[in-house]
Every structure is written in C-alpha cells, then in structure tokens.
Nucleic acid binder design. Structure first.
Lengths: 215, 215
DNA sequence: CCGAATCCGCAGTGATACTG
DNA sequence: CAGTATCACTGCGGATTCGG
C-alpha cells in the first residue's frame, strides 16, 4: 500500500508512482476497453495473483484513476471503470504500446492475444479524419476473440465483447496464426473473412483503420 | 536478470517487460537528454542502489535500447547512450510525462526537479511549426540547474548541462520555488531573468516553447 | 574517482487456500 | 462473485567492498 516514491518533482516520476507498478498498466489497458468486474480482469490477466489485483484496484481507486460502481440491474455485483482522469491515460498507454509493437517479434510459446489488446490497437490505428461524419458499428469475431468498434459521427468507441447495439457488419475470421489486429486486417484484405450485414462497410472499415505505423 | 514475462502477445505488455521495471523509465529519461556515465546517472537518481542501476543498464543493453560507449578523448571511461531503437521511446516517455504533469500537484517535502526533467519538458512543449527554419542556441541557468536547447533549422536538441556550442542567449534565473520549466517560463515572461547575449531571442524562446497543455 | 560486485534485511510479489 | 489470508520467495534498498 505504501507506494515507494522517487523523490523527484517530475511528471514522469509521478506517473510511474501512480501506474508504474507491476500489472498496473495492463489493468488500465483492460479497463480502457470498458468497465468490468474483478473476475473479468482476472481472466484477462492470467498469472496475476488475486491479492495483487485487489491491491492494485484499491490503489487506482485511491488515486482517482478507477472507480467502483454497482453493476446495473441485469447483472449485479461490482464494476470497475476508468474515471475521466483515468481516461486521460489513454494516449500514454497507446503511445507506449505502439513502441512495444515494434519490439514484439514472433509470439513466444504460450503467448496469447488479449481481446483488449485488439481493441486498443484499433484505437491506435484509427484515422479520425478518414472517419469524419461516419456512423457505423462492427463486430469482429475470431476463435477466443470478440471485439467491437462503434463509430458515432466520426468518434470511435472500442471494446471487447459483443457490440452493445446490433452491429451493422459482423466479420468472422478463422486465422491460422494469433488473432492480432494486423493479422485480422490482412485476412480482411485477402477476403478471408465471413461477412454478415452491410458488406460495403468492409471497405469502410479498412479505410478508417489504416495502420500508419502502429499495427 | 530473469525478466518476468506477462505471457501476452501485446505491444503494451512487451514494452513493460522491456522498460516497465522500477527505475528503468527514469534511466531512459536521463539518457534521452544525452549520453552519461554511471555516476552521472547515480547523481540524477538519488535513491537508486548501485546494483539496481548496474542491472538495469545491462538489461537495457541486452535489449538493444542502450549501448555502452568508450568516452571520447578528453574524458575517459564508459558512457551509456540511447540506441536508435531507444530514441524511439521518446514519444512514449513524453506522453506519459504529460499525463503525470497533470497529476503533479504541489511538490512534496524533499522533492527536487532533475535537470533532465526540464530538458524533457522542453521537448514536450516544443512547437515545431513555430520554429520552422530557425537556428539558435539557448542556455538556461538556475540554482542547481543548467540546461540547454539547440534548434538547428527548426529541429530541436535538448539536454542538461551547458550548451555544446557557445549559446546565443544565456538566461539566468533565481526562482523562489522549484525550477520547473513552467516556473522558468513564468519568470521569463515577467522579466525576472538575467540575459546575456542576443536578447531578442528571449521572445523567440517564449514563442517556440509555448506550453499547449504539457507544462 | 569510476564502475561496479557482494551481502543482508525487508517489502512487494506469486501461488494457493479459504471465506462472506 | 469478489475478494481476504497465509506463506514462500524474489527483487529492491542500503551499505560495504573491490578492482581499474
């Protein structure tokens, strides 16, 4: 609980005091994809001990980055969600992830692609000028992966799981390799995807998620 | 030495495996301000144990982020410097620092402002369009702080310590509070600065280091 | 002096078990 | 479902020592 400080009046040092501990930024990544419950986070972060997740969530809540919510009616229990201050972390997380993407190399044995990573990559590669004025919803499916992208008047919302509204186009992939967003884009370009809905939105999808350098 | 992995094929996770351990990003921040030796890093990071610094530098070198150099003739010994791959970390470091700046609040007792932080903040606030075609060198001095900014045909190089060439303008501050870049800018705007050199370059300085939201 | 290696005590982490 | 409790372990902080 006692966050070890760095003793420096420096933005970077302060950021690292708040989100620099082990697992913390991965929790932030997952919560940036939408609110979720304790066990959802556990599932998305295999290897994290429950006490560490518990501690991290308390620290993040104490810092005002995350807030606990009582889940709305149909479900029940506790939801963790980013605050506005936490949402402000997104550019930093994405920029770091873009650098990390350039260092990824081949997947190591046993590594998997979290759905929240795909959602984050979509946000990183989104071309807001190409999407100006657009409104549409996609749902992407692959083995062990469902994510959605919702563009409302040019503004993007992305998350894992099924789309919160009926998607305009459902894209179903059966990739040979890991379902990275890059692999999905390649498959889509090659026509290796099953479409369900407004098929013309495939081209739109490929246009607004044009990886600059970030895929 | 055995970097604990996260088991995820994700850019963010990989980035954190490479530079996510305690102290590592602060070392990167300091090296982004220019090559320096082991003891320079120790001085700039009070509290870091020597064995930890040693270990981090080895890890960073093994990852190809940092390289050891034999110091050029006048000095001697070992210099640590960023590789090209390491330089690519700068946008990520800066973006994280910008968020951290918004969380800084008042300085805590005993906190100080590292010179490399000021250099980084200058890079974060630099307005490259406002500096187009410009060439000039500044040196900023305050108690316990010397940094420089070198603009060559619109391109910025910043670092701590005296300017590598004779500066066109030397700005000497005597701030009451901590010498953050924001405080220096305020002092400069208020005329609370002693100038030595081409005085007109003060206005130029204030124009190209216009903090958007990053100060 | 520079650039570490070594040793020790402890806090943070990982794994498992258990509870409201 | 949402955590807490326990305990072994490893990485970190602090100090000292050591070779170029």
């Amino acid at each position: 609980m006692t966050n070890r400080d760095f003793g420096q009046y420096c933005g970077l040092a302060r950021a690292l005091e708040l989100v620099g501990e082990r697992w913390t930024m991965l929790i932030v990544r997952d919560l940036l994809a939408g609110p979720r419950r304790f066990t959802d986070l556990l599932d998305g972060l295999p290897g994290i001990p429950t006490n560490v997740l518990s501690t991290r969530l308390k620290e993040l809540e104490a810092s005002g980055i995350v807030e606990r919510q009582v889940a709305p009616s149909p479900q029940r229990g506790v939801l963790y969600a980013m605050t506005e201050m936490g949402e402000a972390l997104q550019p930093a997380i994405i920029t770091l992830a873009v650098w990390g993407n350039s260092q990824l190399g081949e997947p190591r044995p046993g590594e998997f692609v979290p759905a929240t990573t795909v959602a984050m990559t979509m946000r990183a590669t989104f071309d807001s000028t190409a999407a100006e004025g657009l409104t549409a919803t996609w749902e992407l499916r692959a083995p062990d992966l469902i994510v959605h992208a919702q563009v409302i008047d040019g503004a993007l919302r992305t998350g894992d799981g099924p789309a919160p509204v009926k998607p305009d186009l459902v894209m179903t992939f059966k990739p040979d390799d890991l379902p990275t967003f890059r692999a999905l884009i390649q498959a889509a370009k090659g026509g290796l995807v099953e479409l369900e809905g407004r098929q013309r939105l495939l081209a739109t999808f490929l246009r607004i998620f044009a990886p600059k350098q970030a895929a």
